[in-house]
């Protein structure tokens, strides 16, 4: 998982990842809890921090890098993300279209 031959039980990558994850969790929770922003801005904040935090977890905890020594793991990750886009996007597209045509 870590290529550096450090003997410390907590690696810098874990600390960086954890601090970033805490910040990226605290931001949307604070935005919702204090209700400071307009609803649409809050949704945008939740969406952006979620996507960034997922990338942080992939990079610092699951050790996914763009230039990886495990190219097959990266390829399968990209494949899964493409599948998710097609299936989630397609489901929402078709079902909302159907609801519209059914007069809802």
């Amino acid at each position: 998982m870590n290529s550096k031959p450090t003997t410390s039980a907590v690696t810098p990558a874990h600390i960086t990842g954890f601090v970033l994850a805490v910040l990226l969790t605290a931001i949307p929770f604070t935005a919702v809890g204090l209700n400071l922003l307009a609803p649409q801005t809050t949704i945008l904040v939740i969406a952006i921090t979620a996507v960034v935090q997922i990338i942080v977890h992939l990079r610092f905890f699951l050790d996914i890098r763009i230039k990886s020594d495990r190219p097959r793991a990266n390829i399968s990750l990209v494949f899964a993300v493409v599948l998710l886009f097609i299936m989630i996007g397609g489901t929402i597209w078709i079902m909302t279209d159907l609801a519209f045509r059914m007069g809802h």
């Binding site: 899964a80 599948l83 998710l84 299936m87 989630i88 489901t91 929402i92 079902m95 909302t96």
Partner: peptide, 12 residues
């Protein structure tokens, strides 16, 4: 992918 489909179902 399994969770993704449950999320899609939830969204609908």
């Amino acid at each position: 992918v399994l969770f993704g489909l449950l999320f899609a179902t939830y969204a609908i």
